[in-house]
Computed example of a mutant assay.
Amino acid sequence: MLRHHGDVDAAGELLDFAVNVRLRQPPEWLRDRLIAALDRLGGYPSAEDDLAARCAVARRHDRSPEEVLPLAGAAEGFALLPTLRPELAAVVHPSFTEPELALRDGGVDVTRVPLDPADGYRLRPEAVPERADLVVLGNPTNPTSVLHPAETLRSLARPGRVLVVDEAFADAVVDEPESLAAERIPGLLVLRSLTKMWGLPGLRVGYALGEPELLRRLTHRRPHWPVSTLGLEALLACCEPEAVAESRRAAELLARCRDELAAELADIPGIHVALPAAAPFLLLRVPNGPSVRAGLRQHGIAVRRADTFPGLDEDHIRVAVRGDAENARLVSALREVVVPPASPEWEHTDEEPVATVTENRSTTREATR
């Protein structure tokens, strides 16, 4: 269950709300850069290519090249975590499950830090065990769409502790206000991905930011040439100023579409929307989740089942934010397939009631103007 991902839910000829990737394919300018790099595939990825990519990432985040580690996707960063040999890893949930899987597979003791839906899935630092020498969380968090304050994350740093912040969706947040990517905090490891913003899930490319010594420990016994020539070219291209400006415009559009979609979904009787939301996806709670997912598939729509995330159940689903026309189709289909339960007991949960969601919706709209 922990290895379930949205691409499984989206299999087939369906309108895809299950996979959190903004584009169906990379933009034309990025495709041109990758095509031009094909002629270099006759040689191994070079030290010059690696340095150029690290320098581009470093400029993007005001770091030094020695503080940058290109990765074969952020998932490789999670796979490398057992190399740090922590005694106890604390993983904040609900969140992306690959870090926990990688740690458990590497023989690391893992404890879960569950977040309370009644508290908006906000992180309380005191909930993290003091003896945990490795802490993992996402910001913004998948699938709750919560953006934790940077101050809260900084408070988790300790001497002798590695703090891993998964920022795979940070570039989809306007101005990245809570990102720690540019901060030099001892023990901080920030993981980033190009997959979501640039439509590159098939290329597998991302990067880590942290102290040089921490990165050296992370890459102990790592295979040679882990990132391809095309991956390094993508890193270089997507960290250039023009690309960063384009990603900001995309984040602004995603925020507008997300807030409008959240408002329309919250008006459907029986649907609870987890708010406020900061990422390009929304977490919903619906009555009889499996039936709703099946009904949506009959309408040609795929959504992400969310009961595979620790702390959520089969009535939770995650929906990606798309353009206006696609979002309207999702809302229309949900109006048809969601049948509010007759019993009021379903409403009495530890999650926000519909009235609270509606109230928060106006606050969210105001904050994004």
Rank of each mutant, 00 (worst) to 15 (best):
W29Y: 05
L41C: 10
F96I: 12
T97F: 05
R24W: 11
F78H: 07
R40F: 06
D105T: 05
E87Q: 13
G43I: 09
P27S: 13
E66D: 15
A56D: 05
V92R: 07
V57Q: 00
P27H: 07
E66V: 05
H61K: 01
C55E: 15
E66S: 09
A79T: 08
P99K: 10
R85M: 07
R54M: 07
A72M: 11
R33I: 09
P82S: 10
H61V: 02
E98G: 02
H93Q: 15
A75E: 10
D39G: 11
L30C: 06
L84V: 10
R54P: 06
E28I: 15
G73T: 06
P82E: 09
P86L: 14
P82F: 03
A58H: 00
I35K: 14
A36C: 04
S64N: 07
C55R: 14
G42N: 13
A90F: 05
P86I: 15
G77M: 12
R63P: 00
A79L: 12
L84T: 03
R31T: 15
A79W: 00
A72Q: 12
V92W: 00
R63V: 00
E98C: 03
R63C: 00
S46V: 11
L84Y: 01
L101T: 15
L101C: 09
L41P: 05
F96G: 09
P26A: 14
R104A: 12
G106E: 07
R31F: 03
R24P: 05
T83W: 01
L69M: 10
P26Y: 08
E66M: 07
A56R: 00
L101R: 07
P86R: 05
L30H: 02
E48N: 06
L101Q: 12
A74M: 11
V68Q: 02
D49Q: 15
R54I: 08
A102W: 02
E98N: 08
E67N: 03
E67I: 07
L41W: 08
H93D: 12
L103Q: 09
L41I: 13
R54F: 00
L84K: 03
P99S: 09
A53I: 08
P27C: 13
R40M: 14
D105V: 05
L88C: 07
